[in-house]
Each structure stands twice: as structure tokens, then as C-alpha cells.
């Protein structure tokens, strides 16, 4: 299974294997990653699962669609060039080794 690392605002790093087909938001919620609240449960309604993707890997994950793009403009922590909502990122084998920064607010 692809290995993913979350880097929390506190500096804590969490590395875990995530099954292909799950979203990174679901995985983070299960792991109790600080800063991933996912209030709407992945319905693209709340923008509380914001992550910043390692810039070297961002392009390979595709681009946000229009709704996600609009939501990202409004995230509390401010948008970074490789900001994503992790409920929209469904894990594929290409995600292996991905590092995500979880912005603190």
C-alpha cells in the first residue's frame, strides 16, 4: 500500500500506509491527524481538510476542479500554490511516498 506522511503544524510527523481508493481525508481522520477536521465528511462543503502537497509531487496528483479551486481560495490558513482539499485526493499507487503539510491556523 502507498505510504503517506503528514507533517502537522506542531511538527509531529505521521507516516502510514493508506489503501488505494481511500481519500487522504478519510485516512487522516482515521489516524487522528491534528488539523484535519473534515467536518462535512468529504462533500466539498467545509474546507477543513486542507493540506499542502509536496511541490515536487503536486502535478502528478492532477488539478483541483472548479469547486475545490474556489474553496481553496478561502481556506483559513491561506492558500499555497500546492494547496489541496484532501477529501478530493483519492489514493492511487502513484501516491507512494507523498508528504503532506497540514497548515496550522
Amino acid at each position: 500500500m502507498p505510504r503517506i506522511t503528514w507533517i502537522c503544524a506542531s511538527g509531529r510527523e505521521v507516516e502510514a500506509e493508506v489503501a488505494v481508493g481511500r481519500t487522504l481525508m478519510e485516512a487522516a481522520r482515521g489516524l487522528g491527524i491534528e488539523g484535519i477536521h473534515s467536518e462535512c465528511g468529504g462533500n466539498l462543503a467545509c474546507a477543513t481538510c486542507h493540506v499542502v502537497v509536496d511541490p515536487a509531487r503536486a502535478a502528478a496528483l492532477g488539478s483541483p476542479d472548479a469547486m475545490e479551486d474556489d474553496m481553496l481560495d478561502m481556506v483559513d490558513a491561506g492558500r499555497e500554490p500546492t494547496s489541496r482539499l484532501s477529501c478530493q485526493l483519492t489514493v492511487t499507487p502513484a501516491f507512494d511516498g507523498l508528504r503532506l503539510t497540514v497548515p496550522g491556523v
Binding site: 474546507a47 474556489d70 481560495d73 478561502m74 481556506v75
Partner: peptide, 12 residues
Amino acid sequence: VSDPAMHMLARR
């Protein structure tokens, strides 16, 4: 309606 940006701003 289909305007999440305005929704987020409104909450703020």
C-alpha cells in the same frame, strides 16, 4: 448556490 467561495466568506 454552487458558490462555495461566497459561502466561506459569509461564514467569516
